[in-house]
């Protein structure tokens, strides 16, 4: 996906973010906090930033604001709830002898602009009760439903699901 050229400041911010994340990941995996480990983490983080290069642009989707962490928590809450409900729903279907299924494929639109935001939304939809993201074409998602009750307004139902996850995501992603 082609994006317009971005400023030096934004690029530096993305590099710093990637570096910080890499160092944090290294330290978490190493599980010790002495200065040798810190040095190794710094070298590894620097290498990651160097190797990633242009690919770091995906981090440009993050929206920095004071309320962003709050929205992140809200998203995690909504997502965790959806994941548990998805599993109970799936367990019920798999265990019932009649295998209640009525699959359909529906297209929905998203307001998220950035690749990172769309990636997270597509992921969340896949782990939400009864839905699977099949394809992403620009701002249109193709979603496979396990069970569409006949007579239900499927497009509206899908849009509703997307909204509940999209709302908190919009708080910290573009």
């Amino acid at each position: 996906m082609e994006e317009p050229a971005i400023g030096r400041k934004a690029r530096l911010g993305q590099a710093l973010l990637a570096f910080g994340l890499s160092v944090l990941l290294w330290l978490l995996l190493a599980g010790s906090w002495n200065w040798e480990e810190g040095l190794a983490a710094g070298i590894a983080g620097g290498l990651v930033v160097l190797v990633s290069g242009q690919k770091l642009r995906i981090l440009g989707g993050i929206r920095f604001s004071p309320s962003a962490p709050l929205h992140l928590l809200r998203y995690l809450g909504a997502f965790g709830l959806a994941l548990v409900r998805a599993n109970l729903d799936m367990a019920r279907r798999v265990l019932s002898p009649a295998l209640p299924l009525n699959p359909a494929v529906v297209a929905v639109q998203t307001r998220l602009q950035s690749p990172l935001g769309r990636l997270l939304l597509a992921n969340s939809i896949t782990l939400t009760p009864g839905t699977l993201t099949v394809d992403v074409q620009g701002d249109r998602f193709l979603i496979h439903w396990v069970d569409c009750t006949p007579g239900k307004d499927l497009a509206a139902a899908t849009q509703a699901i997307v909204r509940t996850l999209e709302e908190p995501l919009l708080g910290f992603l573009k």
């Binding site: 994941l83 599993n87 896949t126 782990l127 699977l132």
Partner: peptide
Amino acid sequence: QAGTKAVTL
């Protein structure tokens, strides 16, 4: 669908 959700949780 069955595989992804169940295995993740």
